[in-house]
Design a binder for these strands. Structure first.
Lengths: 207, 207
DNA sequence: GTTTAAATTAAACAACTGTTTAATTTTGTG
DNA sequence: CACAAAATTAAACAGTTGTTTAATTTAAAC
């Protein structure tokens, strides 16, 4: 009667790994079945179809993402710049914790093929975006912030992180690091990235 | 005897459109043949294989990209900040001129599947990146710039543009624009994006 | 006009795709 | 144990994939 959530989760986890490596269309169910060590029919048994597996994957991420902002926004006692700093920290911690998940969603954002899934991911990002934009707008109105472009400030924050996450080898190449180095799990790199974005936003927004 | 370059280019052009919409793996040669109005065998006749068509596509873009920086870098009479401003302008003009091309390359950057093509695109970006990083480093050394993080400043510049180009519908949603509006071909948006990145870089780098 | 190479075509190829079936095994419950 | 529901399996399904073939048309050169 009860769906074995753990097995579903296991398949999703392996699917993220595979899709991040080969892309959704580039991955076959037989590949996935082999990687997850289950029978080919199990994916359709648990999820109904390859596409619905993807939807379940996005759904799981959506839940994760929605918790991201809420924790920060509710704390109204913080100054606008402090709120932004907390959000930047939260973004970096959560995105860098699972680069593959982020890449799979980025892939889907780049193509317009599966329209409803495309829309879903956009909703996901936009929800967080509006919160950040609101904080900036309030800061401008209360004359704590310079008259910046709130929407594009958001694009710069998320864009910087996405740029770093997009390709590990590109990241290593630009930063001149050895091939065995993993920036995403390195605390020092976390700090470096956090500091850069915060510094940049501070100098841009604060008078 | 002579290869009909125009026909090759025509196929590449249609391939960019198709790949941007459905992804490389998601697009079939039959789709492409129909869209380009040629026989299915022609793609293999001209390019050898689907993958080599992609390589030709990347090659063509590489040529385009390499011209980007050169024009700016050679002008040594400019101040470091002026050089950066010219590069930002050049990036925005050229990237926004063909969002689909950019998206196709981003797709390939996200997956690690085709290793050599992945490497090629990374080379392409890194080449430009190092020039920009050098300008910033020189600016810091001559104490014209603050002690910023040169590599991550590059990530912010490119990341902001990529974030805007990633998905048109996401871009519209965040900027609260109607669905029929095309930001990429709008001069005003060009100016807005250029101003934002320049302003942000100025306040971050200049004392 | 004849000849040779290039371009184009429809058809066929084998391999792979997501999905379904029907049979079997496992699991949980009384 | 017995029984029913759930889980798992190998095999088969029909459709699509990239690619190749061999035949035909077009173009160029002399």
């Amino acid at each position: 009667m009860t769906m074995p959530i753990d097995k579903r989760d296991h398949i999703i986890k392996k699917a993220v790994e595979l899709f991040a490596e080969k892309g959704f269309e580039g991955s076959s169910i037989r590949d996935l079945a082999a990687k997850a060590d289950v029978n080919v029919a199990m994916v359709n048994y648990y999820f109904g179809s390859k596409e619905k597996l993807f939807e379940a994957l996005v759904e799981k991420r959506a839940l994760f993402m929605s918790q991201l902002i809420e924790n920060v926004i509710t704390n109204k006692s913080l100054l606008p710049i402090e709120q932004l700093d907390r959000i930047i920290e939260g973004y970096i911690i959560r995105f860098l914790a699972d680069p593959q998940y982020h890449r799979v969603l980025q892939q889907e954002l780049l193509i317009t093929q599966r329209e409803q899934m495309h829309e879903k991911i956009i909703e996901l990002i936009a929800k967080n975006a509006f919160e950040i934009i609101q904080i900036i707008k309030r800061g401008i109105k209360s004359k704590v912030f310079n008259k910046v472009d709130p929407e594009l400030v958001f694009a710069s924050i998320l864009g910087t992180i996405s740029q770093v996450l997009m390709s590990r080898s590109l990241c290593l190449k630009i930063m001149n690091k050895p091939k065995d180095y993993d920036p995403y799990s390195d605390k020092q790199f976390h700090q470096r990235l956090t500091k850069h974005i915060q510094d940049m936003v501070h100098s841009h927004l604060l008078k």
